[in-house]
C-alpha cells in the first residue's frame, strides 16, 4: 500500500483523463447535442404503429387493413378502436371507417404488428410526437395513421422488402389457384341464365362488359359475372331483371368442387351470402355467415371455423371478429335451426 489518499489520487487521475479526453477523444465524446444533432435510429427501432396503403392516388381504397379487429383484441393496453366501414345499405366495406390509436396509452409493444395477418399495420420510428394537449391531441385517427408503402420502404428497407416479396408471392399463388377454379365456376353458372338464348359465350374471355377493378369480386366471380352480363346485354334482357335469377344458381354443394364457394366474398351482404348457400349443408351455411375475410381471427380460416363448429370441435360461436354480433347471432340461429344447440 502506498500513502493515505492514494486511492483518492488515482481516482482523480481517472477523472482528469476523462475530463480532458471528453474534448478530443471520440470514445469519451459521447454527448449528442439534440436537437441540433440527431442520432440515426436503427432500422428496427419502433415507436408507434401506422397503417400501410399501396396506391398514392387513393390511400383509403388501397389500404391493406380489412378491419378484422385482430389487433384491437390483441393490443395489451387496449388502445386501438376500430369501426368497420359500411355503405348506405349496411354492407361491410372491408376497411375501417374509424381507426383510432391512443398514443398516450400505446406502449409501443409491436404486438399489433405481429398479429396482423394482412401486413397492414407497421411500426413507425418517429419519436417526436409531443403535443400541447394530453387528450384529443394524443389520439391518432385514420388520416394521420395512413402512410404509404414507399414511406415504409424508406424507414425500414429490409423489413419492407421482405413484406413486399411475401405479399407478391401470396398474390401470385392466389391467382394461380383461381385460374383452374374459373372453369367449374362457369359451368355452375350455366343453368343460372335460363333467359339467355346463347349460353355458349358465357365464360368468353373477351367480355364486352368489364367489371370495375375495385368491385369486390374474386377472379372467378368476376369472370363469370362479366361473361354473364355480356350475354344478358347481348340478348337484350335488362340486368336488373336478371339479377334475382343470378341469386339462385349455386350448384348443390355436394357437387361443388372444393374451394368453389360463391358466398366466399367479403363484399356480399349477410342475406345475400345466406341465399347463395341456401341449398347447402349446415357447414356451408355456417361458413356463409362468416365475414369471409379469412383473417384467422378465430384461429382458422372461414372454411375451417365453419367446419369446426359443424363437427362440434369448436363451441365458441363468437370468434369471428370482423363479422361482429351479426355473425355471432346468425351462427347461433343456424345452429338452433339445425337442432344442434
Amino acid at each position: 500500500m502506498g500513502f493515505i489518499g492514494k486511492g483518492l489520487f488515482e481516482g482523480m487521475v481517472v477523472t482528469a483523463r476523462n475530463f480532458v479526453g471528453s474534448y478530443f477523444d471520440k470514445e469519451r465524446l459521447v454527448t449528442v447535442q439534440y436537437p441540433e444533432e440527431r442520432v440515426q435510429v436503427p432500422e428496427n427501432s419502433r415507436t408507434f404503429p401506422f397503417l400501410v396503403f399501396d396506391k398514392d392516388s387513393d390511400p383509403v381504397a388501397s389500404m391493406r387493413c380489412v378491419a378484422c379487429k385482430i389487433c384491437e383484441v390483441e393490443c395489451p393496453p387496449q388502445c386501438i378502436y376500430i369501426v368497420m366501414d359500411r355503405d348506405e345499405k349496411g354492407k361491410p366495406q372491408q376497411r375501417p371507417k374509424v381507426f383510432d390509436i391512443d398514443i398516450s396509452v400505446c406502449m409501443q409493444c409491436q404486438i399489433c404488428v405481429e398479429v396482423c395477418p394482412f401486413d397492414a399495420i407497421k411500426m413507425d420510428n418517429n419519436y417526436e410526437k409531443s403535443q400541447y394537449g394530453r387528450f384529443d391531441e394524443l389520439v391518432e385517427h385514420l388520416p394521420e395513421l395512413l402512410k404509404s408503402n414507399e414511406f415504409y420502404n424508406k424507414i425500414k428497407p429490409t423489413e419492407a422488402t421482405a413484406v413486399d416479396a411475401k405479399l407478391k408471392a401470396d398474390a401470385e399463388k392466389k391467382a394461380k389457384k383461381a385460374a383452374p377454379a374459373a372453369k367449374p365456376a362457369a359451368t355452375a353458372a350455366k343453368p343460372a341464365a335460363p333467359a339467355a338464348p346463347k349460353p355458349a359465350p358465357v365464360a368468353a374471355p373477351t367480355a364486352k362488359i368489364a367489371i370495375p377493378d375495385d368491385a369486390p369480386f374474386t377472379p372467378e366471380q368476376r369472370q363469370w359475372l362479366s361473361g354473364y352480363l355480356s350475354t344478358v346485354a347481348a340478348s337484350g334482357v335488362a340486368p336488373a331483371a336478371a339479377a334475382p335469377v343470378a341469386g339462385t344458381p349455386a350448384a348443390p354443394a355436394t357437387e361443388a368442387p372444393a374451394g368453389n364457394w360463391p358466398w366466399h366474398d367479403p363484399g356480399l351482404g349477410m342475406q345475400r351470402r345466406l341465399d347463395l348457400a341456401k341449398e347447402t349443408p349446415i357447414a356451408d351455411k355456417l361458413m356463409a355467415a362468416m365475414a369471409q375475410t379469412d383473417c384467422h381471427a378465430c384461429g382458422y380460416d372461414c372454411r375451417g371455423y365453419a367446419d369446426a363448429i359443424a363437427t362440434g370441435a369448436e363451441t365458441d360461436l363468437s370468434l369471428c371478429l370482423p363479422g361482429e354480433a351479426e355473425t355471432a347471432n346468425m351462427l347461433k340461429k343456424l345452429m338452433q335451426e339445425a337442432g344442434k344447440l
Partner: peptide, 15 residues
C-alpha cells in the same frame, strides 16, 4: 442499449 435497440427495436422496453 444501442445494441438492444438495433436488435429488438427499443432501448429499454425490449419485449
Amino acid at each position: 442499449l444501442d445494441l438492444y435497440e438495433a436488435v429488438s427495436g427499443s432501448r429499454m422496453m425490449c419485449n
